[in-house]
Design a binder for these strands. Structure first.
Length: 574
RNA sequence: CGGCGAUUAGCGCAGUUUGGUAGCGCACUUGGUUUGGGUCCAAGGGGUCGCAGGUUCAAAUCCUGCAUCGCCGACCA
């Protein structure tokens, strides 16, 4: 490609609405342009990168035995009514009507369509297992699209769906997909981790997310420092620091704390260790039928954070988790939120595992302006129900039993899970078994955020000059950068010759033949992040050399003109 | 959906307080200059100031409504 025939579309200035570095660089490098909130055009450079990601994903999916399909983005509502998700999905599902007022959706995912296909086309256990995938545009009407293509409304996803007659077959394909994902993200040159994830309301036994590690990641991941254990902080089990509480050493006393409305204030007033305090949070409760029913108190240690997901999974707690307001608390307890505690609390209570092993701790006394010091379970108040309620934090023991936890941020780029029979039951996806009986199929589902990977890769690979592509993703593997070509017939001749040679060798090459100053060209090419640059200039031509520059290391080496292309193809690892 | 903010040339912004001929930098066009890291000089093109009403002799500027975009939060998986 000659840059004079190409659309570089680079920008000097950073658009004001781009917050994170990948969004800024994708705009500046001319990879995407926003069309509306959460909707982007992929400009030529961006599309080349996107196609590289797709190519690697496709190759590895096929190598793992999956078969490519392509399903429509617009899907009829009746399929969604059949699966129940027409009701369940909420406003993220964009619904629309055709000219005959028939209802349709823009597909946020394709379980319904693939189920419809498989129930029609597959009728015997002999046709199983089957793993079908596509690389398709999805649409989710996100409440708040942000960070460019990282969280956009329209995005490209690889989604695969597998169908099985039994658990063993599902498990086997799941493991094959797990390995394929590791290969894909490794080939893409990403620093990533598989992470134990929520099986959630979907059910199923097992789920893993694949995260690219980056400061800007929207998820927090807990890692063991001594094993492979990694889990989303939302889900990581918090292990108490000891088996049981230490014996009490002091008698409980009530103290006046007129200004201590927060744990921090309480700690300062009495010079307490924050680990010797506990906070009491009041949320809405439910009865056995799941109907709203009164309030319930949750307690975590003063320096710990309540985990919303864990709390809302408790049978006594309303889901989604809803905090009581000041008036509700006052009506139920007779004191405000700053003075709550376990002693004399007229509400049902669940305490975190760590709270259950505390001794001599401080908490509110359920009277405005008073706290108790030196509370001890059993002696001063009965120990209520105990549950895992808090977020893990760095330094906690790892739930795998080995080492302690460290917390890093990650960007979710892949998610695999065993769906079980949720969709096949709803949509009657089944076959005849060996014994001639009808049986609904087990399903697995495997997603990769193709467009998000492009942004995630930039988050991990950039410097002050721009993007530094992993070679497998780079829009061009090599750029020929002639110095003042329009003044030197020699430079032009060599540049043209190398350009033809590169093309002949199958390299994706950009020939920057613009009549620009060298500084402008260097800056643009580094911004775009092309891994290898061949600098052709009068300076080295007398010796028959060019300069080969590496984007990542910045290293420059003189290479004989005759050897350059051979050297580049030898190290090419696309 | 709640809170806050923005909307003036392709991009980044000033001008709005105190109403009076539409500005700056970058980008773009032309000519010259320069030529191994975002040259310099000169000339030029480009804006119904988000939209609709209102106040006024006069509105980018004041008032009302709407739209779009963004940030924080909640929500969702």
């Amino acid at each position: 490609m000659r840059s004079s025939n190409y659309l570089l579309a680079t920008l000097k200035e950073t658009p004001s609405d781009a917050e994170i570095v990948s969004h800024q660089l994708m705009m500046r490098a001319g990879m995407v342009r926003k069309v509306a909130s959460g909707l982007y055009t992929w400009t030529p450079t961006g599309l080349r990168v996107l196609r590289n990601v797709e190519r690697i994903v496709r190759e590895e999916m096929e190598a793992a035995g999956a078969i490519e399909t392509l399903m429509p983005m617009v899907q009829p509502a009746d399929l969604w009514q059949e699966s129940g998700r027409w009701q369940d999905y909420g406003p993220e599902l964009l619904r629309l009507q055709d000219r005959n007022q028939r209802d349709f959706v823009l597909g946020p995912t394709h379980e319904e369509v693939i189920s419809e296909l498989v129930r029609k086309e597959v009728s015997s256990y002999k046709q199983l297992p089957l793993n079908l995938f596509q690389i398709q545009t999805k649409f989710r009407d996100e409440i708040r699209p942000r960070f460019g293509v990282m969280r956009s409304r329209e995005f490209i996803m690889k989604d695969a769906y597998s169908f099985h007659i039994d658990e063993a077959s599902l498990e086997q394909t799941y493991q094959v997909m797990f390995k394929a994902y590791q290969t894909i993200f490794s080939r893409l040159g990403l620093d990533f981790r598989p992470v134990i994830a929520d099986t959630g309301s979907i059910g199923g036994n097992l789920s893993h997310e694949f995260h690219v590690l980056a400061e800007s990641g929207e998820d927090a991941i807990a890692f063991s420092d001594s094993s492979d254990y990694a889990a989303n902080v939302e889900l990581a089990e918090a292990i108490p620091s000891k088996d049981k509480a230490d014996p009490a050493t002091a008698t409980m006393e009530e103290v006046e704390t007129p200004n201590a409305k927060t744990i921090q204030a309480l700690v300062e007033q009495f010079g307490l260790a924050i680990e010797k305090t506990a906070k009491t949070l009041i949320v809405h409760g439910v009865n056995e039928n799941g109907d709203a029913s009164g309030l319930i108190a949750l307690m975590v240690r003063g320096d710990h954070e309540l985990n919303d997901i864990k709390a809302s999974k408790l049978p006594q707690v309303a889901s989604p988790l809803t905090f009581a307001n000041d008036d509700e608390i006052r009506a139920a307890v007779g004191a405000g939120p700053g003075s709550l505690g376990p002693v004399g609390l007229p509400l049902p209570m669940v305490v975190d595992r760590e709270v259950a092993v505390m001794s001599d701790f401080a908490a509110g006394s359920n009277k405005d302006g008073y706290h108790y010091l030196n509370i001890n379970w059993g002696r001063d108040v009965e120990l209520p129900a105990v549950a895992d309620l808090r977020n893990v934090k760095a330094g906690d023991p790892s739930p795998c039993g080995k080492g302690t936890l460290d917390i890093k941020r990650g960007i979710e780029v892949g998610h695999i899970f065993q769906l079980g029979t949720k969709y096949s039951d709803m949509m009657k996806v089944g076959v005849l078994t060996e014994s001639g009986k009808h049986q609904n199929l087990l399903m697995g589902c495997y997603g990769i955020g193709v467009s998000r990977i492009v942004a995630a890769a930039i988050e991990q690979n950039n410097d002050a000059n721009g993007i530094i592509w992993p070679e497998a993703m780079a829009p061009f593997e090599v750029c020929i950068l002639p110095m003042n070509m329009h003044k030197s017939a020699r430079v032009q001749e060599v540049a043209e010759r190398l350009y033809e040679e590169c093309k002949g060798a199958g390299l994706n090459v950009l020939f920057d033949d613009r009549k620009e100053r060298p500084g402008v060209m260097f800056a643009d090419i580094e911004l775009i992040g092309i891994p290898h640059v061949i600098v052709v200039g009068e300076r080295n031509l007398d010796e028959g050399m060019i300069e080969l520059k590496n984007r990542r290391s910045g290293d420059k080496e003189k290479v004989a003109i005759a050897d350059v292309v051979q050297q580049l193809t030898a190290t090419n690892n696309r």
